[in-house]
């Protein structure tokens, strides 16, 4: 009897975590192809993925860039992306998905939307937002939110929208310009990727002091125990993002049990969870 109980406990301990599977850069159909990140075509292909007769994903990340040259708000990951669509097109595409017949996500939890606001307005030379540009970018993001929340409400869908950025100043602009009435839950999250000096984007959590962030999204393989303790000590939700899942990625997910994984391989992750 005792040995059977131990066996049950051992097997239960081997269960894999069940994080939300969120589509990275609106591009998560295999094989991984970063050149198609944040494009309408890849987004359609990702939304069409199915597992067990339901959408494979639990949510989607949409990036927006404010281009310094003309203050255009674009659906893009990088400044060298060819013919990026206006950011509003990405929201319209996802809003149309909410009108489909049947479920919009794999699980029964709210569809998770990550609206990432890129922290720079030009890469060569590297430029950051001016205070005016921060407000323009924030207003663009709220416009996307409005399209998505109205469509979800009209179609009886449950969604939650997380505004995410490497820039606390951009999140502050979002908080300052928040509409009085919001149809869907709103949250804010900090992004942390490759640390300095290898990459200039990541900022310490202290820089987000005073902001109502509830989550931190980190790169799964550039993540230290100290970061984990900092996130947990602030009682923040942990999310992982990655480009290509390796054995290291899966081990990190098993060890740190993030609430969500933002992946470019939705089917692989869904099948890994289901093993």
């Amino acid at each position: 009897m005792r040995s059977r109980a131990l066996l049950v406990l051992a097997l239960a301990a081997c269960d894999r975590p069940t994080p939300l599977v969120v589509c990275h850069n609106a591009n998560c159909a295999e094989p991984v192809n970063p050149e198609a990140d944040d494009t309408i075509e890849a987004m359609r292909e990702s939304l069409a993925l199915e597992s067990d007769g339901r959408p494979t994903i639990d949510g989607m990340e949409l990036d927006s860039i404010l281009r310094d040259a003309d203050n255009a708000c674009l659906f893009a990951h990088d400044f060298d992306q060819l013919n990026p669509a206006p950011a509003i097109e990405s929201a319209n595409e996802l809003a149309a998905f909410f009108a489909r017949t049947g479920p919009i996500s794999y699980g029964d939890r709210p569809f998770r939307i990550e609206l990432e606001l890129k922290a720079s307005t030009s890469d060569v030379p590297l430029k950051r937002h001016t205070p005016e540009q921060r407000m323009i970018h924030a207003q663009c993001a709220w416009e996307l939110y409005s399209i998505l929340s109205e469509s979800a409400s009209a179609n009886g869908r449950t969604i939650e929208v997380f505004f995410a950025s490497f820039s606390p100043e951009l999140l502050a602009a979002l908080v300052a310009s928040r509409p009085e009435i919001t149809l869907a839950p709103v949250a804010y999250s900090a992004l942390q990727g490759i640390p300095k000096p290898l990459d200039a984007e990541t900022r310490p959590l202290d820089d987000y002091g005073g902001l109502p962030i509830t989550a931190v999204e980190v790169h799964s393989q550039w993540f230290s125990d100290a970061q984990y303790e900092a996130i947990r000590s602030r009682d923040l939700e942990l999310g992982f993002f990655m480009f290509s899942a390796t054995a290291e990625t899966f081990a990190q997910v098993e060890q740190f049990q993030p609430t969500m994984v933002v992946t470019s391989e939705a089917t692989l992750f869904r099948r890994w969870i289901a093993w």
Binding site: E35, I194, M242, F243, S244, A245, T249
Partner: peptide, 9 residues
């Protein structure tokens, strides 16, 4: 072709 192609690998 770009960093995202290999950074995780």
């Amino acid at each position: 072709s770009q960093g995202r192609d290999f950074i995780d690998l």
